[in-house]
Design a protein around this nucleic acid. Structure first.
Lengths: 216, 216
DNA sequence: TAGATTGTTAATCGATTAACAATC
DNA sequence: TAGATTGTTAATCGATTAACAATC
């Protein structure tokens, strides 16, 4: 596997998917080279940040031309593991859980939802696309037998930690937490959070108090 | 309207919805007081951060007891505008757009989706819950006539900036960007991003390269 | 009172930006 | 060559943590 020049700091990791998306679309336009300042403009960053970020990778640009799109894309694919398919389970078959399980963009990006679980027995057996909602008691078995690497927590805050514990015990190595609750996991299980309502609430504050953007 | 002691820094704004959620659940348990270190434990922060954060508000704790839950909740409600109802439009009636429009949690949190738009005329008139999918040409009219304050962008990256421009022209003051594309808006229009696939890709990297958490 | 916890100041840490020699 | 753009070092900025006097 790819060895990195150094551990990529969290601030940079957060930008990687955006670089990747941008590079994909430049590649689709058959553009071959991009400079740090062009990328910066596209992503709302400074060229300094872009060059600083790329210095983490084992990949170099060329003076006067910038970065080769194809090479950059290959590097990002490796760093993000975008060339592999992850098996994923969704816990929580509410509105959010159902969407996630159906989300065709996931498949396109290499995230394959293999099962949906819910604690509510009323929901067991009901269909979410191709999948049937399963009871929580099947979780460990499915994760192990199918080699599931990630779990998505789409349950109410009150249940989130219990679900996280189940996922960890079952053996997943990554958790996407969509609940409001902070969850605690062992050091070898990574967690990222994505909270849509929280984003709307932030926005609400910013609108009310006109939190400006930094002036240029 | 509430006046703040000072502008709340972005790092703090990001935590406000989590404080709020936590305080709501403590309140539901009829707990009356909470200390900075208890809150820190619940949210995975340090007590220093909690106290530093709260120093932005016009709200004080009491030595030896901590912070009064009801008072804290009131303060956060005002800061987040959680006591008001925002009218919101969703642009993009794909998988993600439909979910968002149906998401019952939004209503509970004061975000009322009043219309869904899509550029694809095949989708016009089809139902998303109670709502019919409308053509983009109706956007300005609906935003103005209904007093819509926020828009949610749930379209592919390539269309995101155009949609943002439409929303801005129509008069929304906040945009939740769920697309991968960076969008540019005038200074008086706030933007927050929430990208689920990006979160999964971050997670993917962290799992592959075992990005540890900071050791305690 | 004695002890716990706040509010705030100062120190540390990490992220971003600026600057510029190296280089194509 | 001349000029543009990288890669990297140093400076700045902002966020987090530590420390402690004030206080209930």
């Amino acid at each position: 596997m790819l060895s990195l020049k150094k551990v990529i700091p969290p601030s940079v990791v957060k930008r990687l998917p955006r670089y990747f998306s941008c590079v994909q679309s430049l590649n689709a336009k058959e553009i071959e080279w991009v400079s740090s300042s062009e990328l910066a403009d596209l992503l709302g960053l400074t060229s300094s940040t872009v060059r600083q970020d790329f210095s983490c990778f084992d990949f170099s640009g060329i003076s006067k031309r910038g970065y080769n799109i194809v090479g950059l894309q290959k590097m990002l694919v490796e760093i993000l593991g975008a060339d592999m398919t992850w098996k994923v389970v969704v816990v929580g078959a509410g509105n959010m859980g159902r969407v996630l399980a159906l989300h065709e963009e996931f498949v396109r990006c290499g995230f394959d939802v293999v099962a949906v679980f819910d604690a509510d027995s009323e929901k067991h057996g009901t269909k979410v696309g191709e999948l049937k909602v399963l009871p929580m008691s099947d979780l460990a078995m499915i994760v192990e037998s199918q080699g599931v690497g990630m779990g998505i927590i789409a349950v109410p805050a009150a249940a989130a930690q219990d679900v996280a514990d189940l996922l960890v015990d079952a053996g997943v190595k990554g958790i996407l937490n969509m609940s409001m609750r902070n969850i605690i996991t062992p050091n070898d299980v990574s967690v990222t959070a994505s909270r849509i309502v929280a984003s709307l609430q932030q926005l609400s504050h910013c609108v009310l108090f006109s939190c400006g953007k930094k002036k240029k």
